[in-house]
Simulated scan of single mutants.
Amino acid sequence: MSSRSVLIERPGEHRLVAGPRPEPGPGEVLVRVAAAGICMSDREVYDGHRDAAYVRYPVVPGHEWAGTVEAVGEGVGASLLGRRTVAEGFRACGTCERCRSGDTSLCAAGYDETGFTRPGAFADHVVVPARLLHPLADDADLPAAALLEPAAVVAAAVRAGRPEAGERVAVVGAGTLGLLAVQLLAAASPAELTVFDPREERGAQALEFGASDARTPEEGAERAGRYDLVIETAGAPTTAASSCLLARRGGRVVLTGMFTPGAAGIDPVHLSLNQLTVRSVFGAPSSAWSFAVRAFGAGLIDPRPLITHEFPLERFSDAVALVGGGDPGVGKVLLRP
């Protein structure tokens, strides 16, 4: 049986390759990919803009995915065969002090992630350690479940922010992360849930997902110091600083956006005088994955409406060109092997 994959040999150069179906080794499973999402980090890999420490060429990208277990390696129970599943991307060692403390996204063994340093899911099949699986219900919507990776990142951010019922909450950015954050935060019964994004269409979608208000970033100055909790998801040059200005004195800010060098810094005077708590999130620990999968199974988050485009592997060029292009009509783009 053959298996195809999208191989980026070097920045800007890719080809669709075919070969024998990969076989899982000891402790591993082979998953037939049902759907894989393309995000900005995948576009950065393709364009060559990702930090060299966080990618290894040639690479098969794809870290947001869902599929069905098709084969198991030595030492893995046969009960997993046929299970619908997602899996964590970080290949945490499980034995260092950070992993043993539950902070698997801070593994001291070094960065190692499916789709960046290991073959990913822009392919018919992907091989992953069985210990990283999060099995889903038998009737789970697999294309929607492909968004559980960003949902896990959002879950890590929301859990770090510790929302309480009746609080005023803001979400900065209404992309995939921001709209998933709205769904999770709405389930926490905030008194006010405001989304800041320059795109009118995204603001309207945020309202459908449970936000109470949608405003442009320019209107943020009118809301300075208003919010108990601010979840930043945009990663724009100014949003780390502007998110801190939205928080009330003693408030909490969680940064999830991927910032580039030269982004506006957070004013240390404002930070200290207002006694803000500022956290950042990169990836998601195992606990956040479990939380996201539970929320998905319970219907607290529904990623399906975020999907706007689906392409076969053969049209990877068309698919990746849509990501990061600025078209407000482009939401989550999926590859469907």
Rank of each mutant, 00 (worst) to 15 (best):
Arg32Leu: 04
Ser3Met: 07
Gly161Glu: 08
Gly251Ser: 07
Val278Thr: 13
Leu245Gly: 14
Leu313Ala: 15
Gly62His: 10
Ala36Lys: 04
Val278Tyr: 10
Cys244Thr: 11
Leu313Asp: 15
Glu28Thr: 10
Val17Ala: 11
Phe122Gly: 11
Leu180Asp: 01
Thr176Val: 15
Pro303Arg: 02
Pro58Met: 04
Ser243Phe: 05
Ala191Thr: 02
Ala53Ser: 15
Pro61Gly: 10
Met40Glu: 14
Asp141Tyr: 06
Phe311Ala: 12
His14Thr: 12
Glu23Asn: 09
Val195His: 03
Asp138Asn: 02
Leu7Pro: 08
Arg279Phe: 14
Leu246Tyr: 05
Gly73Asp: 00
Glu164Ala: 09
Ala66Pro: 01
Leu147Glu: 06
Leu80Glu: 08
Glu219Val: 06
Thr233Arg: 02
Ile38Ser: 15
Ala146Val: 02
Pro143Ala: 09
Gly299Trp: 01
Cys99Ile: 07
Thr256Cys: 15
Pro58Ser: 14
Thr308Phe: 08
Thr308Cys: 03
Val169Arg: 07
Glu167His: 00
Arg162Ser: 04
Val320Gly: 13
Glu222Tyr: 02
Ala321Ile: 06
Ala144Lys: 01
Glu164Met: 05
Thr239Pro: 08
Arg168Trp: 09
Pro237Arg: 09
Asp103Thr: 14
Val76Trp: 02
Val72Asp: 13
Arg159Gly: 04
Gly166Arg: 01
Glu310Thr: 15
Pro143Cys: 11
Arg98Asn: 06
Pro135Lys: 12
Arg168Gly: 09
Val158Phe: 06
Ala52Leu: 15
Val29Thr: 10
Phe90Thr: 14
Leu273Cys: 02
Val76Lys: 05
Thr114Ala: 10
Ala53Cys: 07
Phe90Tyr: 14
Val323Arg: 11
Gly329Arg: 00
Ser243Gly: 14
Thr68Lys: 00
Gly235Thr: 06
Gly250Arg: 12
Glu167Tyr: 01
Ala170Gly: 02
Gly120Arg: 05
Val60His: 01
Arg100Asn: 03
Ala78Trp: 06
Ala155Met: 02
Thr194Leu: 04
Ala144Phe: 00
Ala144Leu: 02
Arg91Lys: 09
Glu314Arg: 05
Val154Lys: 09
Ser212Pro: 09
Arg199Glu: 12
